[in-house]
Design a protein around this nucleic acid. Structure first.
Length: 563
RNA sequence: GCGCCCAUAGUUCAAUGGAUAGAACACCAGCCUUCUAAGCUGGUUAUGUAGGUUCGAUUCCUACUGGGCGUACCA
């Protein structure tokens, strides 16, 4: 499809003597199909030429001819271009069948590494639905960037270090039980108790800070407790990642950088950027209208920012990244602005390659989630509920129990992931059970169902598609709009990558499924006397199934073969 | 106080500054002896307020209102 746009821009450039790239940006896809496949609004040109836009449109369109474009029409101030539809089916379907599941991929990223920091759960805290967005978006961006040829490194920057562990250790020593087998939920209740007690006794916080300081200094007793907390938490978290079918290339979390923060402090000192203020060491950012970036607490312990800076330099050295994407909520916007600014001030031009892919806050109907107050929904519970609901639906479909279980997982998990990816990342959202567990309309089961229908059709026709297909028979309105949409898939991937926005792909997949279902209801495939038309339709079905599956995979959603 | 983000239909969300602001859910009415009804067809309802820039604003700018988040030793 891009080639059509380029052709139009080229011939317009020839005609008007205006730069190709400028024209290419102005060319748009009309909202209404009756205005063609591409259009060129003449307002800006009319301003330059000082001629009314309708006249400009008319005079340019008059004797314009472009290969592959069937009709060029000036309507008011717009020039509308209509693609030659017979040619379209031929080009699009052949291309998809040839490339298969590689259709839409590219090599633009070859030789470049993208580090994606996502999910990043906190040890000894619930893996809750607030983590779903980061987890799903990060995983999808990983797949999208890989599809475009980039080498990706998925990092789970585990929150396994910091004052919170001082708190937890204090709580455990006061109220814990050495012999009991602990779960994350037990640790959370200890943590909650700590905060309750600390409200009455300010000394507890003091104590916790002291304990963390000693933990950083490798005090054996504390380190072994910390290790225990970490191990049991990771074990539970990995169970959830397994359900989600998400893998990481690195689990280097905050504790990993404990022995690397010294180098960062030394570098800052050497560059004379460090200032002592109120007992702490800071990088002053007042000039940039930001609070200071605190690098070292007054008691000498490290902070979130220090460890994140250490992580940046470690990753630069280790991966020499083209970009690093931080898929982290917008509540941490200031934090990232600060540390990116510090890197820039240190004189590293590649500070621009650090990108905070932020997203809106997820809250519950009763309000903001709060681990301390116990207002929280565990992600694992949501996933399991979803699987149960799918199982309920699949009950009477005559499947074996292993078949049913595996299907329920693909569909149920997919629905949860998809619900997090369908809305734009920036908007704040409220977690609603009925929304996440809705399997109709804008949901992955809808797309999966459509895919399964197509597979079933293809199977029933049971025919090898040969090369002599008369694609020009595909001229039904539903066929043409489906073809046009299929041709846009590569652009959709590129857009999703450049905006760090998997929702672009999610919306596309739903639209594609919708277009197919219209075709399905209006254009029979199996009961068809005209064999040439049947062949052409089957190939359209195959092409569509490839793209739906590919799109879902890029979102991290599996595609079942029947349901 | 200051900074950032958000405000679109009853609800949840779309819309690179462009033509008649799109969906889904919910609700109502139809469609299975013909390709899987997790489907299809039809119907009702919306850009917070006041200005500005522009040929053209949901989109950009300013103020206001209402929400969310952040704002020096939490992550």
């Amino acid at each position: 499809m891009e080639t059509f746009k380029n052709k139009i821009a080229e011939s317009l450039a020839k005609k008007t003597n205006i730069d190709f790239n400028i024209l290419s940006e102005v060319i748009e896809v009309p909202t209404n199909e009756e205005f063609g496949d591409f259009s060129f609004p003449c307002f800006q040109l009319s301003k330059i030429l000082k001629i009314a836009p309708t006249i400009v449109a008319k005079s340019i369109a008059e004797d314009l001819e472009i290969k592959g474009i069937e009709k060029i029409e000036a309507i008011g101030p717009y020039i509308n271009f209509f693609i030659d539809k017979k040619n379209l089916a031929n080009v699009v379907i052949k291309n998809i069948l040839k490339k298969g599941d590689k259709y839409g991929s590219s090599l633009v990223g070859i030789g470049k590494t993208v580090v994606i920091d996502f999910s990043s759960v906190n040890i000894a805290k619930p893996f809750h639905i607030g983590h779903l967005k980061s987890t799903a978006i990060g995983n999808s961006l990983y797949k999208i960037y890989s599809f475009l040829g980039y080498q990706c490194v998925g990092v789970n920057h585990v929150g396994d270090w910091g004052t919170q562990f001082g708190k937890l250790i204090v709580a455990f020593k006061k109220w814990g039980d050495d012999k009991k087998k602990y779960s994350v939920k037990d640790l959370v209740s200890l943590y909650v108790k700590f905060h309750k007690e600390a409200e009455k006794d300010e000394g507890l916080n003091e104590e916790a800070r002291g304990v963390f300081k000693k933990l950083e200094a490798n005090e054996i007793e504390y380190v072994s407790l910390w290790r225990m907390f970490r191990e049991l938490s990771l074990k539970e978290f990995k169970r959830v990642y397994k359900l989600l079918n998400i893998k990481f290339d690195s689990w280097n979390g905050e504790s990993f950088y404990n022995d690397k923060v010294g180098d960062v402090v030394a570098m800052l000192e050497e560059k004379k950027m460090l200032e002592k203020s109120r007992g702490a060491y800071i990088v002053d950012l007042e000039k940039f209208n930001m609070p200071p970036c605190i690098v070292k607490r007054s008691d000498g312990a490290s902070l979130y920012a220090t460890r994140d800076l250490a992580a940046i330099f470690y990753r630069k050295k280790e991966y020499n990244f083209y970009k690093t994407l931080y898929v982290v909520g917008n509540a941490q916007q200031l934090h990232f602005k600060q540390i990116f600014k510090v890197v820039e001030l240190m004189g590293f031009g590649w500070a621009d390659d650090l990108i905070h892919v932020d997203f809106g806050t997820v809250s519950l109907q009763e309000g903001a989630m709060s681990t301390r107050k116990g207002i929280v929904v565990y992600l694992e519970d949501v996933l399991n509920e979803s699987i149960i609901k799918v199982n309920e639906i699949l009950k009477n479909k005559g499947l074996t129990s292993t078949e049913q279980n595996s299907l329920a997982k693909k569909i149920g998990i997919g629905a949860v992931i998809f619900s997090a990816l369908f809305v734009g990342r920036q908007s704040d959202s409220t977690f609603l059970w009925e929304k996440v567990l809705n399997f109709e309309g804008d949901s992955s089961p809808y797309a999966q169902y459509t895919y399964v229908r197509i597979r079933s059709l293809i199977k029933k026709v049971n025919k090898n598609i040969n090369n002599n297909i008369n694609y020009s028979l595909l001229c039904h309105e539903n066929e043409l709009s489906l073809l046009k949409l299929l041709s846009e898939f590569p652009n959709v991937i590129t857009e999703a990558a450049s905006r760090y926005e998997p929702s672009v792909v999610a919306r596309y997949v739903i639209e594609l499924a919708k277009y197919f279902n219209k075709f399905y209801h209006n254009c029979p495939v199996i009961n068809l006397e005209n064999e040439d038309l049947q062949n052409a339709r089957v190939s359209l079905c195959v092409a569509t199934s490839i793209v739906i599956k590919s799109g879902l995979n890029l979102l991290g959603v599996d595609c079942p073969e029947k349901m």
